[in-house]
C-alpha cells in the first residue's frame, strides 16, 4: 500500500485516493481547431515511462482535492511535485 502525500491532509494510505493518470495533459484551448489525429492524441495517448512519472491523484475519501506527485514506476518512490506545490 502506497503512502501518498496529500498536500492538504498529509501522508495517507493509498486506499483513500483515486488515480488520475499522467499530469500536465491540459485540455486543449480550442478542441474544435484540432484535427481528428490531434484530438485522439489528447484523448487516448499518455506517457507510460519506466522510471519517474508525474501523475495526478485525488484524495477521494478525504479532502477531495486533486494534486500532483512524481512516482517512480519501478520502485514506487513517491515525492511531491515541486512545480505543483509552487502553483498552489
Amino acid at each position: 500500500m502506497l503512502t501518498l502525500p496529500c498536500p492538504f491532509c498529509g501522508p495517507r494510505d493509498e486506499t483513500e485516493f483515486g488515480y488520475g493518470g499522467e499530469a500536465g495533459v491540459a485540455y486543449p484551448e480550442r478542441p474544435a481547431d484540432l484535427d481528428d489525429a490531434a484530438w485522439a492524441e489528447y484523448l487516448f495517448l499518455r506517457a507510460n515511462p519506466r522510471g519517474w512519472f508525474t501523475e495526478r491523484w485525488v484524495h477521494r475519501a478525504g479532502c477531495r482535492q486533486w494534486f500532483t506527485v512524481r512516482r517512480h514506476t519501478v520502485t514506487n518512490e513517491v515525492v511531491p511535485d515541486a512545480a505543483a506545490q509552487e502553483v498552489r
Partner: peptide, 11 residues
Amino acid sequence: LDTLEEWQQTE
C-alpha cells in the same frame, strides 16, 4: 460529483 470536481479543480 467526481467528474464535476475534477474539471473545476484541474481545468
